[in-house]
Each structure stands twice: as structure tokens, then as C-alpha cells.
Simulated assay, not measured.
Amino acid sequence: MLSRASAWRLLTGRLGWSLQRTERRAVEGDESEIVRWIAGGDDPVSAGGGQIVDTARQTG
């Protein structure tokens, strides 16, 4: 079993992970814009049709 320090070195050094934290959060939201965004289907994740594509296995 790895110690915390060894696990951190493995994740950051060899696997390229980084500690990601948000810089700031919105204090208030524009409700009308949120409703428009939800109703409009502007979600880039769902725009792909919900399919997961493994680009590493695609050839040519």
C-alpha cells in the first residue's frame, strides 16, 4: 500500500494529475438566462446524443 505522499507523487508526477479548485463561484445567477439555457438545449454534453466515443480505439 502506498503512503499519501507516494500516491500524490504517482498521481501528479507520473500521471499528470493536478489539484483543481474553482477560483470563485457566482454569487447570484440570472434566473431568466438559466431557464433559457435549460429550455434551449444548449448543453454541449447532451448534444452528442448521449453516446460515448472511444477516440483512442478509432483508426484512420
Rank of each mutant, 00 (worst) to 15 (best):
M1H: 11
M1C: 07
L2G: 00
R4M: 08
A5S: 14
A5G: 08
A5D: 10
S6G: 06
S6A: 13
S6C: 06
L10E: 05
L11S: 00
L11I: 03
L11Q: 00
T12S: 09
G13V: 10
G16R: 02
S18G: 08
S18K: 12
L19M: 13
R21M: 15
R21F: 10
T22E: 13
T22M: 10
E23M: 10
E23R: 13
R24E: 11
R24S: 15
R24C: 05
R25D: 01
A26S: 12
A26Y: 15
V27I: 10
G29K: 12
G29H: 13
G29S: 13
G29E: 12
D30M: 04
D30H: 11
E31M: 06
S32C: 10
S32Q: 14
S32T: 15
I34Q: 12
R36T: 05
W37C: 03
W37I: 07
I38A: 14
I38K: 10
I38H: 12
D42T: 05
D43N: 14
P44R: 04
V45K: 01
S46R: 14
A47T: 02
G48S: 08
G49Q: 11
G49L: 08
G49D: 10
G50R: 02
G50T: 01
G50D: 07
Q51P: 00
Q51N: 08
I52C: 02
D54P: 00
D54G: 01
T55F: 14
T55L: 15
R57Y: 01
R57F: 07
